[in-house]
Computed example of a mutant assay.
Amino acid sequence: MVKLQRAFVTAVLFSIFIFTNAFFVDNKRTADSQTDTLNILLSVLTEYVLNRRTEVNTRITKNEQRINLVLQKQAELERKINEHASTTGKPSLLTNDEISDSYVPSRSCADILPDRFSGDDGIYSITPLNVTPFEVYCLADPLGGCGWTLVWRRNAMNTEFNRTWEEYQNGFGALTDNFFIGLDKLYVLTNAEAQQLRIGTKYGENNWEFEIFEEFAIGSVRTQYEVFVKSGNNKSSIFQRLGRRARFFTKDLESSWGNEECAKVMGVGWWYSDDCKTYLKSRPYYMYINSPTYMVIRPKSCDNKG
């Protein structure tokens, strides 16, 4: 009987030892697992912070530049107030005319985004010479130059650009979507200052074709917005997106040149030259003219900026 009791006690003690050992082993594994998980989270967080650091620094730099610009304008106003006070012998507020003289409106996106650190792409208001302010979409130059003004954006082949003469004169669409700035505004912008033009055309499956024109301008309505271009480094193509001295045609325009037939067949208003008539039955040309396209302009003087 004593032997049986001793054997029972021994078995119980052994079971307790096994259970205790297993308990501590499981706890150790759980602790190790939690440590591994914590290390992974720390690694992910560290990588995220490092990746965002450059972006955060860039935005801080942009904000600092904007603040400095505001402070400069404020200092200029204070200087004029002090000059006025010293001249008249008494402090006085600036007149509305004097305040207006101290403010120089942005004539184009190049003034708003003089370099890639000065702001983000987006909608801004510009005031070309002798024109009421209007909104445009500005794009920062990824290469560091001054900004571009969007004048045409077509995102897909559709009927949104099969418009009338009046619609093309006034402009149409949304600044953030399919859009044309309007022939009248484009005339003002290209005649106020010599402009560069960049055209991107997505022709084919995923083949972007880029054309750069060193000089670009259009005439007034009296010339049917005749286009003047000087080519830069253009990629060779079987078609020409923009020909020299072509006039603008829409589906409803009646003219002595007769190129409105091209607008009717192609389904889009454009600067059609006489060559367009040779492509009226060309399916590839129709696809090209109606391909996703964007056009941006900026002052030619941007090339002279460091």
Rank of each mutant, 00 (worst) to 15 (best):
V265D: 01
V44T: 01
I199S: 08
R66Y: 06
L42Y: 10
A194D: 15
E226H: 00
G200I: 12
P128T: 14
N304V: 01
N259H: 13
E47G: 05
P105I: 15
M157I: 14
Q72E: 10
N63W: 06
V12F: 13
L143P: 00
W271L: 07
P142A: 13
T46A: 06
P142T: 05
I212P: 00
F117I: 02
Q5M: 15
S237K: 07
D26I: 15
C109D: 08
K3Q: 08
Y137A: 08
D274F: 14
W208H: 04
Y187D: 00
C109V: 05
D275R: 09
N206D: 15
Y272G: 03
I16Y: 12
G306D: 01
E166Y: 10
Q5C: 13
V229H: 10
R153K: 15
N68D: 10
G269P: 09
E215K: 09
V131K: 05
L41M: 07
N233P: 10
M295G: 04
I212E: 07
V188C: 03
A217T: 11
N170D: 12
A11W: 12
D36R: 11
Q65V: 02
N206P: 04
R59W: 07
E254I: 15
F134W: 03
H84C: 14
Y48H: 15
S282E: 04
I181M: 13
F239P: 04
Y48T: 14
V229L: 14
F216S: 03
T37E: 11
T20L: 11
N234I: 12
N68R: 10
I297F: 09
P128K: 14
Y272I: 08
R247E: 09
F172K: 05
I212Y: 12
S237I: 08
W148D: 08
R66P: 00
Q65D: 06
N51M: 04
G144E: 02
A246D: 05
Y124F: 10
V25A: 13
T190N: 01
K230S: 11
L183T: 01
N162G: 01
T149M: 03
M1S: 10
F213P: 00
D32A: 14
L94D: 00
F179M: 15
L77Q: 14
R29C: 07
Q74D: 00
N191F: 11
L50P: 01
R198D: 07
T223R: 06
K3D: 00
T87E: 09
K230Y: 06
K62V: 11
A31H: 06
N39Y: 13
T176S: 14
T88P: 01
E135N: 10
S15P: 01
K300N: 09
Y286V: 02
P128H: 13
Y103N: 05
C302D: 02
L93H: 10
G267L: 06
T58M: 02
T37V: 12
K28F: 08
G122A: 12
T10Y: 12
S273Y: 03
E98R: 07
F228I: 08
V229W: 07
M266S: 01
T54A: 08
T164K: 08
I297M: 04
T176W: 13
G89E: 06
A246C: 14
K202R: 15
F14N: 00
E254G: 07
L71E: 12
D141N: 01
I16P: 00
E211T: 01
M1Y: 05
I181W: 06
K305S: 03
K185Y: 09
N39E: 04
A11M: 05
L139C: 06
L42C: 02
Y103G: 00
